[in-house]
């Protein structure tokens, strides 16, 4: 039902999000930093702190944004839940990057390096 209505009225965000998955568009800043942070297993709050410290406090992601981003990344298989959620953390889940996620990170790094290189070369 929902999708029939989408066809008529159209939620542009969903269209945009679906297109993002299929083509090799650039990662958003938030996604890039989340993937960087998840090279070691972290739970939600840890990711927020890590992204903030990696970017020297420039980028702060709200928990709401993070939740949506994590769910996107899990659907794409770029990250995976880590271990069983037990112990002191109670129900808090931890996440970790997958091999597919690492590939994406490497590809993105190459793309960024190309941008930087060309920028250095051609910006006068």
């Amino acid at each position: 039902m929902k999708y029939i209505v989408y066809l008529c009225i159209g939620n542009r965000y969903n269209e945009w999000r679906n297109n993002m998955g299929n083509s090799n568009t650039a990662l958003t800043e938030a996604v890039y930093y989340i993937l960087l942070a998840l090279q070691e297993p972290l739970h939600g709050y840890g990711i927020m702190q890590q992204t903030s410290s990696l970017s020297n406090g420039r980028l702060s992601i709200s928990a709401g944004t993070l939740y949506g981003a994590l769910s996107n990344l899990l659907e794409k298989g770029w990250i995976t839940p880590y271990g069983e959620s037990e112990g002191q953390d109670g129900r808090r889940k931890q996440y970790q990057i997958t091999d597919a996620g690492k590939e994406v990170l490497k590809a993105e790094l190459e793309r960024l390096e190309e941008l930087v290189e060309n920028g250095r070369k051609y910006i006068k």
Binding site: H43, G44, A63, S71, L74, P81, R91, R92, K93
Partner: peptide, 12 residues
């Protein structure tokens, strides 16, 4: 896809 409850997640 996140198994945690949204409210619990944000509270944490």
């Amino acid at each position: 896809a996140v198994g945690e409850d949204y409210v619990v997640f944000r509270n944490s």
